[in-house]
Simulated assay, not measured.
Amino acid sequence: MKTGNGKTGRPISFDKDAALEAAMLLFWERGFEGTCMTSLTQAMGLNPSSIYAAFGDKHALFQLAVKRYMGTRAQYATVALEEPTLEKVVRALFDNTVAFLTTPGHPPTCMTLAGAMGGSVEAAPARDLMTEIRRQNEVAMKERFLQARKSGELSKDVNVDDYTRYLSSILAGLSIQSANGSTKAELKRTAEMALRHLGC
């Protein structure tokens, strides 16, 4: 391949997919601000110049890692929203969330909650990205609940915005409890309690 000075450089010979997976898991575990370049080079098995050449700077790498997370790990909510009835949708949201949080091989929390914690100016773009994803997730939930309203499954007395925020808050709470060390059995009991209050 050609480099910027017109000379032929060495082509990328490492597994970009595996390297990005490693970066995603590290950002997921430590958040944007808690992940340094030294840790990334160790996890990805690459030197800094190779990372920059293949993925860009830390912000660009974080965005790619988040995109990978959303496309490969975070489909459990989307699948739940495709259930045919409101009751099945709500139950699947809880069941799928608990299953996701307790699946071995990744941190026991949601990356969109844990991935951008921190207060520095440097972390602001990462926080904004995570906030926007969470908002988009709530929009998708609201749209599904509006469908339930139209079909008569959700009472007109229920404020759809409030209903969406309520469910989103409980689901996020499960992620926090999982990160705190709650077991799968404990999360299931919490989910069942919420479902009983929701009438599902």
Rank of each mutant, 00 (worst) to 15 (best):
R10M: 12
P11T: 14
P11Q: 13
P11N: 10
I12D: 02
S13H: 10
S13E: 14
F14L: 11
D15Q: 00
D15E: 00
K16V: 10
K16H: 04
K16M: 08
D17T: 12
D17K: 00
D17E: 09
D17L: 00
A18H: 06
A19F: 02
A19N: 02
L20Y: 03
L20F: 01
L20D: 02
L20C: 00
E21I: 14
E21T: 15
E21K: 14
E21H: 12
E21L: 13
A22D: 01
M24D: 03
L25P: 05
L25V: 14
L26H: 06
L26A: 12
L26K: 09
L26N: 09
F27I: 13
F27K: 10
F27P: 03
W28T: 08
W28F: 15
E29M: 12
E29F: 06
E29C: 11
R30P: 04
R30W: 00
R30K: 15
G31W: 04
G31R: 08
G31H: 07
G31F: 05
F32W: 14
E33R: 07
E33A: 11
G34N: 02
T35G: 07
C36D: 12
C36N: 10
M37N: 10
T38I: 14
T38A: 15
T38E: 13
T38V: 15
S39N: 08
L40R: 01
T41M: 13
T41A: 10
T41C: 14
T41R: 09
T41K: 12
T41S: 12
Q42F: 02
Q42C: 00
Q42K: 10
Q42H: 08
Q42N: 06
A43N: 01
A43F: 04
A43P: 05
A43Y: 04
M44R: 08
M44T: 11
G45C: 08
G45M: 06
G45N: 07
G45K: 05
L46Q: 04
L46T: 05
L46A: 03
L46E: 03
N47L: 06
N47D: 12
N47Y: 09
N47K: 14
P48Y: 00
S49L: 13
S50T: 07
S50W: 05
S50K: 03
I51T: 02
I51H: 04
I51S: 03
I51G: 03
Y52T: 14
Y52L: 15
A53H: 11
A53T: 12
A53E: 04
A54C: 13
A54T: 15
A54N: 09
